[in-house]
Design a protein around this nucleic acid. Structure first.
Lengths: 154, 154
DNA sequence: CTGAATTAGTGGCATATACCACTTTCATGA
DNA sequence: TCATGAAAGTGGTATATGCCACTAATTCAG
């Protein structure tokens, strides 16, 4: 028979991805800890920073995140004064998001810590392989999982 | 200059991994929905199934998951009667975990759904590339992130 | 222009995870 | 044997995320 599955390894792409996510997440969290931000929060601040006062829906889409989840995740950042929201001028349904000056400062501070984490990680797996991995992951993220539940409606 | 970052893509390995995780997670969740299990729960049941009545600590280690997080994640599964725990015979500190008969049945049911998800995914990215991705992810998960906080204590 | 359908967010609820402070058991050395 | 310290879990608290039901604003057909 084939050799027994190494303990902890799974053939499930999803389980494997989550497992790696927990591991890597803790690493980035640890490295970012001095800033008081979690890896996720850093990513969120960064995405807001590089976007142009994005609407929540647009932001959620870019992050492939549920809109309501984004709302929840944003709360601690708003509470801590790093992010603020404001109504769109043309469509009052739309709420836009931006960093506060304090948020920009915090982000800069965090970027320094993040760079170290990023470097440490890439030193371990290789810069090229890390880039390859990201490409692969972005491809996975962008896949069209449209479930053909049954016959596609005419 | 280099071309602007495509919206939603990040150089951060952690952010990219999480983003892909959300995307893939939803896909597996959707596919498993008829069983009433989430992708995470399926992975957990499976890992318990292939282990030999593992102690919680061992299970957590295999999944690279915090022990207390495992405890919390296990609760709904215990409540729903899929998993049960029992004290180790030789060390009363140790709590072992196993599937109930009901849990085994549910797992079998879920495996059918999972297979479809797995197939669909691999049809999209290619079986070989999926395998490569898992290898890469397992490697990342297994990295030694030991933070050399400062001078290693003598 | 008015009522139905659509779009954007919110709030509630449930699971996923982490860290920390305990509590209970063991293991160990004096 | 007994005090100490290590090991395994539990519970609390906080963030991360998703889905669903609902509300507010818009858009659109008639």
């Amino acid at each position: 028979m084939t050799k027994a599955q190494p303990p902890g390894f799974s053939l499930c792409n999803n389980a494997t991805l989550r497992r790696a996510g927990r591991s890597l997440g803790r690493f980035y969290d640890d490295m970012l800890a001095p800033s008081g931000l979690k890896g996720t929060q850093f990513g969120l601040l960064f995405q807001i920073h590089v976007s142009s006062e994005p609407a929540m829906g647009i932001l959620a889409e870019a992050l492939i995140m549920d809109l309501s989840a984004l709302g929840h995740t944003l709360k601690p950042l708003i509470r801590d004064g790093y992010v603020e929201t404001f109504a769109d001028a043309n469509d009052r349904r739309v709420k836009r998001v931006r960093l506060t000056p304090q948020g920009e400062i915090k982000l800069e501070e965090a970027i320094k810590l993040w760079s170290i984490a990023q470097q440490r990680f890439e030193a371990m797996v290789g810069q090229q392989r890390a880039a390859d991995l990201r490409v692969m992951l972005d491809e996975v993220a962008e896949l069209d999982f449209e479930t053909p539940t049954a016959a596609p409606s005419v």
